[in-house]
């Protein structure tokens, strides 16, 4: 069961990387989820907004169809609205300050050995790890 999860992780990862490779080599863009959405939200997308909207449409619609065919996919998200709002705000502000998230800095940055991408990845893993220690093991709320 656990080994199976690793294989699915690897296959899914290869697909994610292929998506990023396609976006780079065909469209000439870096596939960063936070940059694509953030550019539309803060109005900085300008001439690239059609492409960004198309990317998000693919990202939302195709998983929706698959989830429907599979009879639903569980995300197991917490039911605590305060935790959800705090987490969403942190992710939104943080990714836009850092100019990237797991896809932009993690996948696209590390693969070109970008120091910014590597530093970002170290610090968001550190931030996430510390939250798990504090909120799961000390406070026991997540």
């Amino acid at each position: 069961m656990i080994q199976e999860a690793w294989i699915w992780g690897l296959v899914g990862g290869l697909l994610i990387g292929s998506a990023a490779a396609l976006f780079l080599l065909v469209n000439g863009r870096i596939m960063g989820a936070s940059g694509i959405l953030g550019g539309l939200v803060d109005g900085s997308a300008k001439g690239t907004s059609a492409e960004k909207i198309a990317f998000i449409a693919g990202l939302v619609i195709v998983p929706a169809v698959i989830a429907l065919a599979m009879g639903g996919v569980k995300t197991n998200i917490t039911s605590n609205p305060i935790v959800i709002i705090a987490a969403g705000l942190l992710v939104g502000v943080g990714t836009r300050l850092a100019n990237g998230c797991t896809s932009g800095h993690g996948v696209c940055g590390i693969s070109r050995l970008s120091l910014r991408g590597i530093v970002a990845t170290v610090f968001y893993l550190l931030g996430g790890g510390l939250m798990m220690v504090f909120f799961r093991h000390v406070l026991g709320v997540i």
């Binding site: 935790v83 705090a86 987490a87 969403g88 705000l89 942190l90 992710v91 939104g92 502000v93 943080g94 990714t95 836009r96 300050l97 850092a98 100019n99 998230c101 797991t102 800095h105 530093v119 970002a120 990845t121 170290v122 610090f123 968001y124 893993l125 550190l126 931030g127 996430g128 790890g129 510390l130 939250m131 798990m132 909120f135 997540i142």
Partner: peptide, 11 residues
């Protein structure tokens, strides 16, 4: 930014 993002990601 990355520390804040990581905190939200973990939460």
């Amino acid at each position: 930014g990355s520390v804040l993002f990581g905190m939200g990601w973990g939460l």
